[in-house]
Amino acid sequence: MTEQFPNSSGPPAQDPQVAAALDDLLANKAIWAPLDDNVEAAIMRNIAAEVHEAQLDTEPTFTKRDRRYLIPVGAVAGLFLMAGIAIALLFAGEDPTRVELAATELAPAASAVAEIEETASGLRVILEVEGLAPAEPGTYYQGWVRNDTDGVTIGTFHMRGGDADIKLWAGVNAEDYPIITVTLQEEGGGPQSSGVVVLKGRLDS
């Protein structure tokens, strides 16, 4: 069976029966079911978990020859892991990390500070942007966290409301993606970065 959507165009009615019909439509209690913030949070957690899982799935696999090196590499990695845990414990409970983003020559008047917080569902980034021109119609800005080989989007914004604090998010951790950039994108230009970087910063700088 083909399911068809009823035609949603048509003139409004003029009839005393209209009020009663409208009353009938609005009498359904389900119409008034509240939007649940917990559901929104659960959706975002689900997505963060899947993003994280997908990133793990794309990590390189090792050949038999490579495995010879895995034990020493694993030992070194273990040391780094312990150091990482120690650092994490040292900084546990501290304020979010703040990173200054420098303007590129494409937006010399712009500046930004990124406040970065690691959460259970990924990175929460609040970008305080100043002096960045509103994106022209048909364009928008996009935030990214990157490493030397790839990047993950953390959200989009347009600055048409003036300087602002922009809340962004990514389901990755800051250690793997220590570079933050903002690019100017064209609508309909696809999901990849345009490469037109207007702001850039690094967590470990």
């Binding site: 949603s8 003139p11 409004p12 009615a13 009839d15 029966q17 439509l25």
Partner: peptide, 12 residues
């Protein structure tokens, strides 16, 4: 409007 009784003219 498309869910309400047919109108003659104008807004109900």
């Amino acid at each position: 409007a498309h869910l309400l009784p047919a109108n003659q003219d104008g807004l109900p």
